[in-house]
Write a protein that binds this DNA or RNA. Structure first.
Lengths: 163, 163
DNA sequence: ACTGAAATTTCTTTCAC
DNA sequence: GTGAAAGAAATTTCAGT
């Protein structure tokens, strides 16, 4: 585990909120010079704490309005690698979480409509050793946008609800 | 739903992969001028397709090594707003998905260790009208990093497994 | 709509202290 | 850690295609 001080945490929080913040803006907010903030960000990347930057995209605006989680159960003999391989195969699958216990995996799916969802699930059921599925259809979602409670204390939670 | 052409999709994919790509780099990759790419990114932001930029952080490196999903069941009379309000209260809760059917919500939790997880779940059970929980402990995860299958065709899936 | 280019401003990077 | 200087990139604008 990596050693991180309070200022690093604030920098991470700022970059969580807006990954394109400039060094000068962050410098002002955390009370350090631009060079010092850059050095910290560089270090956080070298340490692997910051693994990259990405754009937040509203997929519903692009017509991918349906979101679901599907629990997958596999035949007892199925190795985890096989579970991940089959589940990641469908392009609609956004994330795969392998689970201790029952179910064996939870996958996050994004699709255009319910018909499309049906097709994706049917595809999964036909794949590999899937013995059962249970799908949770997402009605609304909220995501913590500011950095997690990085220090175990309540960081400000700014988020939004959709739909 | 928003009108988006192939080049816009490629720009989105590039920004999904790396939210700090420069206009000149993207211009080269999609075969347009810098000015044209900037105009497209500006438009995608105005349309609300790109909602922002954020840093990817490896929370395990910060000591938040345990991830779980918890299904929540609430008393029948509980309004959705109340579900979201109580579930988002704990700083360890990263995301809340309200669900059509049973369970009523699925929440994504990140904690330091199993003791901590126990505390968070106990807290939720004591809150509001929670009538039951089921927790799925995450052993490993894979996330699609490139932009989704934005056109319904299989976009290249570059991801990674953890743990 | 996009190109190419110029002018301006801002951000990044580096280095001496 | 700071401050300053140099280099790179972003932004803005515009005539031309």
């Amino acid at each position: 585990m990596v050693e991180i001080d309070d200022i690093d945490h604030r920098v991470l929080e700022l970059l969580r909120e807006d990954g394109r913040r400039t060094f000068s803006e962050m410098a002002e907010r955390v009370g350090l010079s631009v060079a010092a903030v850059k050095r910290r960000v560089d270090r956080l990347r070298e340490l692997g704490v910051i693994t990259g930057f990405t754009a937040r995209i509203d997929y519903a605006k692009l017509g991918w309005g349906i979101e679901a989680f599907t629990e997958l159960r596999y035949a007892g003999s199925t190795p985890v690698s096989e579970i991940v391989r089959t589940a990641t195969g469908a392009p609609e699958v956004q994330a795969v979480f392998t689970i201790a216990g029952d179910p064996d995996a939870l996958i996050h799916i994004r699709v255009r409509d319910l018909d499309h969802l049906q097709q994706v699930i049917d595809g999964l059921r036909r794949t590999g050793n899937v013995t059962g599925t249970k799908t949770l259809l997402v009605m609304g979602s909220w995501t913590r946008e500011a950095g997690v409670a990085l220090r175990g204390r309540s960081a400000e939670a700014r988020g939004r609800t959709r739909r």
